[in-house]
Design a binder for these strands. Structure first.
Lengths: 206, 206
DNA sequence: GGAGTTCTTGACCGTTCGGTCCACCATATG
DNA sequence: CATATGGTGGACCGAACGGTCAAGAACTCC
């Protein structure tokens, strides 16, 4: 028996997430948030709390999505090794309005946020830590599966390799963010994949 | 025939650099800069221009230092392979007042800046790009030397491996920044080094 | 020691920020 | 159709920001 909301919470969170992703936290003003969400200040505050809380909501939604995708990629691949190799492909830009297949320049929202706010906001840092530990666990499981499937040497510690893969992937995203051209980025990705995930009994050479 | 400056430009730039490094660009106010430099607003503006110019000065000084150190490390090592391995050690905190040997939590100023300002400030992004291209070249030379010394397979493209090493290093710094404990960080570094820079004819296993 | 020049200091300014509040509105119920 | 309930949006606020400026201090040269 009251006026219903005129907006979809999820749509607003997605729009807000893209804004934070493109511009960063500090460089995004409430006016920006009003513009991309189509809501007034009062509505934003009533629905989500202040700027920081809204940001955290968007960030949590982002990491959940990322993990869902990661879980899917790792589970769906017939061979675990292929899924792991997919992690080390040049990162693609999925932002609205990006050229299809173009390399990303806005990086990963979680990484951007950890870099921008890690020193000042322990909660963001802790969330980043949890996020990457979770990713490590998921990737580690996939490594173990690849070992069982005979595609990776059985002796190695799956978690150590998982961490190495994650670090390498973040490095790739970073290089992409600094404007490294697509060709060099592809070569770097191949070089990393060839060494971190070589075909059994064959050394990488690219 | 005028009043001499009462401060040392280099000391001020170092203090300012540390402040930006610890807090980021946006989160550093002019008041912070006055505090760490010991100068008044007017002096800062007269000597260095506005906040952004002062930041760029500090950033350029930082990257020059980094490259000088990198050149030194790569040149001084009797064997090039050892120098390359040093790149993949867990990053140490060299900030004033840090525990000796502690892992860094403030990362690399250039990387932090590229992440925070890359979208908004093309000059920062371009500087990051130039910086990493230069690093790639230096590391590539060292890779070539390691190949000549017989410590790395001669067939591989030195630049591709250099890029892979650089990406891996940035990944390590990032993981460290998110608060990964020193033990896991060390294991990750070893894992990366074992795979990217294996002993000749021996596969890594950590 | 006086003059000229540069450096230093802090008061001051306009702008923009995040955040609050309230008058107005749309809807559901009886 | 009257009323109660919650949503909406913009006016408004204090604070903090980056930046300017003028007056005084410190120094060198003549």
């Amino acid at each position: 028996m009251a006026r219903p909301r005129s907006f979809d919470e999820k749509q607003v969170l997605n729009a807000v997430r893209d804004q934070f992703w493109d511009a960063g936290y500090a460089a995004t003003s409430l006016e920006d948030l009003m513009r991309v969400s189509g809501l007034g200040k009062g509505s934003l505050y009533a629905a989500f709390g202040d700027k920081r809380q809204l940001f955290l909501r968007a960030l949590h939604g982002y990491t959940e999505e990322i993990h869902a995708e990661l879980r899917e990629v790792l589970a769906d691949a017939p061979r675990a090794l292929d899924a792991l190799r997919a992690l080390l492909e040049p990162p693609i830009d999925a932002s609205p309005g990006a050229d299809a297949g173009a390399v990303t320049r806005r990086g990963c929202l979680m990484a951007n946020s950890a870099y921008e706010l890690g020193n000042a906001d322990p909660e963001v840092l802790a969330h980043a830590h949890r996020t990457y530990e979770k990713s490590t666990a998921l990737i580690g499981d996939c490594v173990a599966r690849a070992q069982r499937e005979g595609d990776l040497p059985a002796g190695a510690d799956p978690v150590a390799l998982a961490r190495a893969l994650l670090a390498a992937q973040q490095g790739l995203v970073f290089m992409s963010r600094t404007g490294l051209d697509a060709e060099a980025l592809t070569a770097t990705a191949r070089s990393l994949a060839a060494r971190l995930l070589p075909d059994q009994g064959q050394a990488g050479s690219g």
